[in-house]
């Protein structure tokens, strides 16, 4: 069922306003298929805001206005029904947020809302997605237990499984490891690299080592502007802009 139909995403001249506040300024960025794009920068630089534009979660924020063009493959996301868009562009949040339901119901939540499906199909999805996130062996005997009974790292992997269950083309991760311990963090990082084989992955992170470890491309944001973007190895070793270098060397941030 993992079709592996990865689709690139792109933003072109995107400006975003919260009321009068100009939060994103003329952002243009390509996020190629089957790659991990890391968005880095100090708090409040707009990286999470940009991420939330990609699946139109900002539509729900009052007073938020987005200008410019955002594309999924060849389609402008304005032309896609936002509910369909969010199925194709999945999201993993900063804090693990499993629903107060069983582990099984957490995984199939998105599928169930799309209509009736035979139990055998749901069972198959539960097993394949939980295997994919490396949780199957840990939870296969307690699928009826609450998702909240898992540890933080397990909860986050459950949330990733939940996002994968609706078979998205793009996976957005908003600081997915900031609430996790080091071991869980490395599990999630490995998982992100593995998922990039058949997904486009965009990850927001505060952790520069993390960006360096897993991403193919890194974009550095500062005060709502995209300062610099480039292949991760290049950007970390030879940043072109002074601001990027200062941030990477810990002079601010």
């Amino acid at each position: 069922m993992m079709a592996g139909h990865s689709t690139s995403m792109g933003v072109e001249d995107v400006n975003l306003y919260y009321g009068d506040f100009h939060a994103l300024k003329d952002i243009t960025l390509d996020m190629p298929a089957n790659q991990i794009t890391a968005l880095i920068g100090p708090s409040g630089c707009g990286k999470s805001t940009l991420l939330r534009c990609l699946d139109r979660m900002n539509d729900r924020v009052q007073g938020c206005r987005v200008e410019g063009r955002i594309t999924l493959g060849d389609e402008d996301i304005k032309d896609i029904d936002p509910y369909d868009l969010r199925r194709r562009v999945g999201m993993v949040f900063q804090h693990p947020n499993p629903f107060p339901l069983t582990i099984y119901e957490n995984v199939v939540y998105g599928l169930r809302r799309q209509g009736r499906r035979p139990k055998s199909e749901l069972d198959g999805v539960v097993e394949s997605t939980l295997r994919r996130v490396g949780l199957w062996d840990e939870v296969k005997d307690k699928l009826k237990a609450s998702g909240l009974s898992l540890s933080g790292g397990q909860q986050q992997r459950l949330c990733i499984a939940r996002a994968l269950a609706v078979d998205p083309e793009v996976l957005l991760m908003d600081e997915p490891t900031s609430a996790l311990d080091p071991i869980s963090t490395s599990l999630v990082e490995e998982l992100a690299s593995e998922l990039a084989h058949d997904h486009t992955v965009v990850i927001v992170t505060h952790n520069m080592q993390q960006a360096a470890r897993i991403s193919n491309q890194t974009a550095f944001f500062y005060l709502g502007e995209l300062v610099e973007v480039g292949p991760t190895a290049e950007l970390f070793v030879r940043p072109k802009k002074k601001q990027t270098e200062d941030y990477l060397t810990g002079r601010f941030g």
């Binding site: 699946d55 979660m57 729900r60 509910y83 369909d84 868009l85 969010r86 199925r87 999945g90 999201m91 949040f93 804090h95 947020n97 499993p98 629903f99 107060p100 339901l101 939540y109 998105g110 169930r112 809302r113 799309q114 949330c159 939940r162 996002a163 609706v166």
Partner: peptide
Amino acid sequence: VPQSYRDGSYGLGCTRWQTIAHVVLPS
């Protein structure tokens, strides 16, 4: 009901009423 539950549901492409019926009210 924590906002993160709603985010999770909307993030999976669910509508407002699906979110209310399946996440908000049960919680």
